[in-house]
């Protein structure tokens, strides 16, 4: 099994994700430069950072790079794809996930630990959590304000495609617990097939005890289990 961690100019969480996959999770993970061929991989992580300096819109330029066509093909085959932070922005800009990520409602770069509620625990990324479980994973972003039109939001809800919501410690999705103004406190969503996850929080920064939380590692562990059973 081998997982690809994409690298665009300006990606900066690429090495962290590769480290977590190889050292904490224990699978092979290659850094794949956006001009190189994406071949022979069983899953893809689009990591965080500031691809192309967030020029035009966060994720807009990377989303149009030819390597994203290969990501689309892998996703069509059912292989798992996860986009983290800027990676989530790239996935929405590429149309692989619905909606858009806009400037935080209070227009400030938010860097903090947040509580997330696992609303879907049946996806390849979330099936080792309990439904409704509150987990702690850090965020670090300026454009994390998830927006989608009414009909998209109701589709996400009715199809159980909201993976995570920002909540307080008790698991309530309050406006105080919402760090960026996201519609319905949405922190992470799934595609229709359930094999693409986009999330603003950084699970790779919560994958070892020394970092204060290992909740994020479960997302990668689940992804690996899913690939093993594929």
């Amino acid at each position: 099994m081998k997982i690809a961690v994409l690298q665009f100019g300006g990606s900066n969480c690429d090495y962290d994700v590769q480290y977590v996959l190889t050292e904490a999770v224990g699978v092979d993970a290659d850094l794949v430069w956006y001009k190189d061929e994406l071949k022979g991989y069983d899953g893809v992580v689009v990591p965080g950072g500031f691809s192309y300096g967030d020029y035009l819109r966060a994720g807009a330029i990377a989303a149009r790079a030819p390597i994203m066509n290969s990501v689309r093909k892998m996703a069509d085959k059912g292989l798992p794809v996860v986009g983290i932070c800027n990676g989530f922005q790239i996935l929405v800009e590429s149309g692989l996930l619905p909606g858009a990520l806009m400037t935080n409602s209070y227009p400030k770069f938010r860097c903090d630990r947040v509580n997330l509620r696992v609303d879907n625990n049946t996806s390849p990324f979330t099936n080792s959590f309990k439904k409704g479980e509150v987990i702690r994973i850090p965020i670090a972003h300026m454009e994390g304000n998830y927006f989608a039109q009414e009909h998209t939001l109701s589709e996400l809800n009715s199809q159980d495609r909201v993976a995570f919501r920002y909540v307080d410690e008790q698991g309530n999705a309050t406006s105080e617990a919402n760090p960026n103004g996201s519609s319905e406190n949405i922190a992470g969503i799934l595609n229709g097939q359930g094999n693409i996850l986009g999330m603003m929080p950084h699970p790779e920064r919560a994958s070892e005890n020394i970092l204060g939380s290992k909740d994020g590692k479960k997302i990668f562990d689940s992804m690996v289990d899913y690939i093993s059973s594929f």
């Binding site: 035009l56 819109r57 149009r64 858009a100 927006f147 039109q149």
Partner: peptide, 9 residues
């Protein structure tokens, strides 16, 4: 449609 604008917003 393909780059300059994001049709969602």
């Amino acid at each position: 449609r393909r780059l300059l604008a994001n049709p969602v917003i």
